[in-house]
Design a protein around this nucleic acid. Sequence first.
DNA 1: GCAAAAAGTTAGCTTCGGCTAATAATCATC
DNA 2: GATGATTATTAGCCGAAGCTAACTTTTTGC
Lengths: 150, 150
Amino acid sequence: MTDDDNLDSNEAEARAVESRAEAFIGVREARRSEVAEDYVELIAELIHENGEARPVDIATRMGVTAPTVAKTLGRLARDGLITRAKYRSVFLTEEGRALAKECRHRHEIVLRFLLSLGLDPETAERDAEGIEHHVSERTLALFAAFSKRS
Amino acid sequence: MTDDDNLDSNEAEARAVESRAEAFIGVREARRSEVAEDYVELIAELIHENGEARPVDIATRMGVTAPTVAKTLGRLARDGLITRAKYRSVFLTEEGRALAKECRHRHEIVLRFLLSLGLDPETAERDAEGIEHHVSERTLALFAAFSKRS
DNA sequence: GCAAAAAGTTAGCTTCGGCTAATAATCATC
DNA sequence: GATGATTATTAGCCGAAGCTAACTTTTTGC
Ligand SMILES: [Mn+2]
Ligand SMILES: [Mn+2]
Ligand SMILES: [Mn+2]
Ligand SMILES: [Mn+2]
């Protein structure tokens, strides 16, 4: 093996390592918005179904305690996704509504895809709730196309 | 609407809420092992390819700093997945090897599935890295069957 | 309209997983 | 074998996201 070969294979290896690191960095990035996405999606749904989104309902549906909801809502408000007044229910901002719509869209595509693969509804719902945060636009498009075709 | 109807629909609603909460609880549960899974999978790979797993290599491949790796390795050791000696490279325990094997298996099935759907390799690798932690056994089986068939 | 229940908030604790800065150990090279 | 570079560790900071306990506000039912 010549020196040139060594250089080349080192560079190729370096690129592979770099690209892998970027994948992990991307996944960590996605992880950071998971909770916010689930909350706004749920809040939009509660508003649609009940006319309002109350912390107590968010808590039971998310399976967490009320103080956890309160703290998370604080972050969502700080990030401009919701507005709220003390002891009152929660509203989505324009930005929050946009995110909620996008999330609901993604959620439905992933869910329909899993169902069309033949998965039972319970498991499909469970898996979709986790997977939805980690599908790229491209993957989403392929999922949608597959469900439509089948 | 009779009282009985009300009772029934309330109970049905309660079950739906309960089941949704369980989905979220399950996803949070899965989230708690994501980092450990990625680390043991990578450690196994490094040992296989280089004969040893050194923190510096873990750090570059994970895209994090060395102190982050050190702290995470501390947790993995505490949880019985690895053994290590100060300033030396890392070894998997029996349990760690078992987990690594399972993770590699899952990773490959998810990756092959995405590729067989027609996704480009770069995006497939990226998405697989996130999705792998959120596929149930059932979904995994469906993914594997689909890749094989196509 | 008051009392009790329900809902919401606040304070304070924990773990995880990231970071920087500083220090310590190991390794490579001469 | 000294020394400079690389690698590893430690200390300490931060924010996210969970919890319990205690308190306040609102709602409900009589
Ligand atoms: Mn979700
Ligand atoms: Mn969702
Ligand atoms: Mn992964
Ligand atoms: Mn993986």
